[in-house]
Amino acid sequence: MTERNCKATLYVETPDIMIPKKLKKDIMPRDPEELGTAVGHVFFGLTDEKGREKTYGLHACCALYGAENVAPGDRMEFFSLKKVAGVVTEETKEPYDEKLVYHITRSQYDAVRKYAETAVEKPPKYNIWTSNCVIFAYKALKQADLKLPPQLLPYSPAMVTVGVRVLERAAKLKDGLRKAGRKLSAVFSSDRKISLSALEKMKSPKKMEGFGVRSLVAEAKRKAR
C-alpha cells in the first residue's frame, strides 16, 4: 500500500518569546504558569485513513502541572543532567502554534504508531537536554523516514519553530516560481534554440560609460605591455 492517505503531524507550542506580538491575542489559550508556555513544547499526532487522530508527547513526570507528591521546587530537578521519570501522554488539550503535516502511507503510520504505543507502555526517561519532548517526537517520526526540521544541539522547540517557518516560506516561494514557470512556458518555446551570435548583434550601443580609476589604471597597464 503506497497511497499516502494517513498523516503524521509535528506540533509545536512555540516558546512565548517567538510568537509575534500582534498574534498573541489570537493564539490557542494556554496556562501562563506552565513551563511549556515559556520554553515551548513539541508533540506529534497520527491520523488514520478515517481522519481519527491520536497525539503523543513526552513529559517529565515531575514537571507535569499538578503532579502529585512532588513539591514545586523539585520540579526544577529536571533542568539538571539527571534523567527523571518520563510519561507519554495524549496531547489533545495541548495548545500549538505551528505544525508540520506529513502525508504518509499506512506502513509509515504503523511504524510510528508502534514506536509511540511502546513508549506509552514503557515511557523513556526524561532529560531536558538529551531526552526531551523534541527528541522523542523526532525518534518516533524517524520510524517513517520523514525529513524533519534540522536541529542544533540541544534539540529544542525553538529550533523546530524556526524549521517549520522556514519550510512554510520556502514552499510559498517555490509556488511563486512554479507560477512563473507556467507563464514562461506559455510564452517561450521549449524547442527553439537561441542563436548567441544573433543576440550579440542585437545589443544596443551604450549611451554613456563610466571608467573609474581602477579600470583606467588596468587599461593603461594593458596597453603598456
Binding site: 517567538m18 509575534p20 524556526v162 517557518r165 522556514v166 516560506r169 520556502a170 516561494l173
Partner: peptide
C-alpha cells in the same frame, strides 16, 4: 533559492516575536 531566501527572511525578526 527557495530555502536560502526563506532562511534569510526568517532572520528578519519574526523568530524573536518582533
Amino acid at each position: 533559492y527557495a530555502l536560502f531566501a526563506a532562511v534569510a527572511e526568517s532572520g528578519k525578526g519574526e523568530n524573536d516575536g518582533t
